[in-house]
Design a binder for these strands. Structure first.
Lengths: 231, 231
DNA sequence: ACCTGAACACCGTTCAAGT
DNA sequence: ACCTGAACACCGTTCAAGT
């Protein structure tokens, strides 16, 4: 940052140094995602982002509409990074793999994941995963209506589970024994008998196990429900 | 707002007029919730809130630690407003009623609900609903561990469903036929065959039905799962 | 076409000064 | 004990001016 040129005084026109030769929408979004990964969503500002790119804050507006469009762009970037498997002949295992792929994509960007889980986009980028899921469900014989219904139920579970997982932060972290101990003590002294009794289980959360358990139970239930209404 | 006194000039010391005779934590939080209800979470600022209370912005800091504590306070206010039914002898219908009560509380403050669904508080205020749910599950014979597990699975579904419901905004609104028509057209022209085919169902969302369907399916599945592992 | 800087109307919060 | 205002270090965004 020091001694970048012979002078420190900023100039007008084209930037004098190599840090930002060609700004572009994709460079802006990529740097924005990196910023979210490092510092969290609430730390994103146009000015800070511009600083990282070595550019005037206002230059960003040549490539994105506004800050909100940047957050939408991050969402699309993450959705596009998910690698969804093609459908096979087994619906249940297909759905499990689709859900795992979605979860994997979120966990690669835990601080950005709330954006994806919170914003509902209707761009074609954001519809691509929907297309894949619907294709899998339709191929297994579900009607379009049942497919939409099933997708929504599973997605609600995924969103709820992942919101807990990515915003839990240090609490519930697997290794942090000290945090678990103090949380457990806090729950035990809450004065609430059921909470105190269940404190050992409330103080920890095995996210992998919760995810796999809930997903399995839910998919079995949907199977049963669909079998019932098909008769 | 005009002509509040003989002079417009603000003074020091105790406020000269009746608008804010005694500020208090509960008055601050109540007004904050009203502000969120009217304008949304992102419109909350200490300055705007103070203006509504007829008070200097800095006065708020005598009653709350900071802005984040206000948002936490709103969450506790809403959680405390939920009226959870006592448990009966039927676990399934108890859980359904608990879930409905939670949903009702969220839907009374749709713009504030994301705060409740997003922040995980460990204050005793926030633990009260947990105590009630655990008591219901324990009374039905579940072990503390199974109770925590079941509560988490149901809560994940509730959070996901309600996040969709409260942040869906005008899209998916029951009455707005024009919005539905244009959304459907958009989906049909997306170029994605499954999305286009399912457009009539993707363009609408009966939140009541989705909620009841998912909840029923999930609780049945949990019942079956618990019956299985108990053998 | 793209980048820039001043300017506008905001923020949250600290701190010393009032009553 | 509580309220106040100036001040600090920030925001997002518009707009005219540069190259």
């Amino acid at each position: 940052m020091l001694n970048r040129m012979t002078t420190d005084a900023p100039r007008r026109g084209r930037p004098p140094r190599g840090s930002a030769p060609g700004l572009s929408r994709s460079r802006v979004l990529g740097e924005a995602l990196a910023l979210v990964d490092e510092e969290g969503v609430e730390e994103v500002s146009m000015r800070k982002l511009a600083r990282r790119l070595g550019v005037d804050p206002m230059s960003l507006y040549n490539h994105v509409d506004n800050k909100d469009a940047i957050l939408d762009g991050i969402t699309e970037l993450i959705l596009a990074s998910a690698e969804f498997p093609a459908s096979t002949s087994d619906l249940r295992s297909d759905m499990i793999e689709l859900a795992r792929a979605f979860r994997r994509a979120m966990l690669e960007h835990p601080r950005a994941a709330p954006l994806v889980l919170t914003r509902q986009l209707s761009s074609s980028q954001a519809l691509a995963p929907t297309e894949i899921v619907l294709a899998t469900l339709r191929r297994a014989g579900l009607s379009p209506q049942d497919a939409v219904h099933s997708m929504r139920t599973v997605l609600a579970f995924l969103i709820g589970t992942l919101m807990r997982e990515v915003s839990a932060g240090p609490t519930f972290a697997a290794g942090d024994a000290e945090a678990i101990r103090s949380r457990r003590a806090e729950l035990e002294e809450s004065g609430l008998p059921m909470v105190a009794e269940a404190a050992p289980f409330l103080a920890v959360c095995d996210h992998d196990a919760e995810f796999e358990f809930g997903l399995r139970v839910l998919l079995e239930a949907l199977d049963a429900e669909l079998a019932r209404t098909e008769i």
